[in-house]
């Protein structure tokens, strides 16, 4: 956040190309987003792969952390889907860890928040819904579409109910992606704006300089809140993924 750009709160979301890569007229350049995706991958891998490399029955610090994350996601998943949901465990775990690491690394001043790019969160949401659709149809066939037909509804009301169910199903990827994107974006903008206020007030001089610590205090409080939001949004993303996958596992109301 401190990286250049004065007090422009949008500057932190700018994508800059590091290595230009444009095959077949497609822009596949390695950008700062790509760099932070790789850092996210490296961080999660360091904790999970290196942390579990000892396979100790009595775990060390890193292995304890890895086990804690493992058991947290596993209990969240089994809480929603039951034991049979464990077949989706690697998928949900990867989503949760990627989103959590992106959000948390984004809190480092000067870093880049991968999840503040709507295309990233949208890709995740589409991926989740695709898995739900493909697994649901492969596993249950046409029975899967019973998901859109609530039971115990009078016949004349049924078309409307089905329409509402379909719309609510289609709005899931939209809300899933926008929730994460919006929270990350807004949080970082708010932090930047309050940081900017401090600079602006000090630059103004005189009486304004005296009240400059006030937005600073707010920025500190907001930072704490943003850490909470960073974790909470990853958790919400994971638990909603579980809820949607549960529909694929057990369709019908």
């Amino acid at each position: 956040m401190a990286a250049g750009g004065g007090i422009d709160p949008i500057h932190q979301f700018h994508i800059t190309e590091i290595v230009a890569l444009k095959p077949f007229g497609l822009n596949l350049s390695f950008t700062n987003t790509s760099l932070w995706m790789v850092i996210v991958l490296a961080t999660v891998s360091a904790i999970m792969v290196y942390g579990s490399s000892q396979r100790a029955v009595v775990p060390g610090r890193l292995q304890s952390l890895a086990e804690m994350i493992y058991e947290f996601v596993a209990s969240t998943l089994t809480g929603v889907m039951g034991k049979e949901g464990m077949k989706f465990f690697p998928f949900v775990f990867s989503l949760f860890s990627f989103v959590l690491a992106s959000n948390m690394l984004g809190m480092i001043p000067g870093s880049f928040t991968v999840t503040s790019q709507i295309i990233v969160t949208a890709a995740f949401a589409v991926l989740v819904i695709s898995v739900v659709l493909v697994y649901g149809i492969v596993k249950h066939g046409s029975h899967f579409f019973g998901l859109f037909v609530p039971s115990g509804v009078p016949g004349w009301l049924l078309p409307f109910m089905v329409l509402i169910e379909v719309v609510s199903f289609l709005s899931r990827p939209v809300s899933l992606s926008l929730r994460l994107f919006g929270n990350m974006l807004a949080g970082h903008i708010a932090l930047k704006v309050f940081g900017g206020f401090v600079v602006a007030l000090i630059a103004a001089g005189g009486a304004a300089t005296i009240i400059a610590p006030l937005p600073l205090l707010l920025a500190v409080a907001l930072t704490a809140l943003e850490f909470l939001v960073a974790f909470l949004q990853a958790y919400v993303f994971a638990i909603l993924t579980c809820v949607y996958l549960n529909d694929a596992l057990h369709p019908g109301h």
Binding site: I15, L26, L28, T31, A123
Partner: peptide, 9 residues
């Protein structure tokens, strides 16, 4: 940057 982001993601 959508294509690049999707590709690297």
């Amino acid at each position: 940057h959508f294509a690049s982001n999707l590709f690297w993601l």
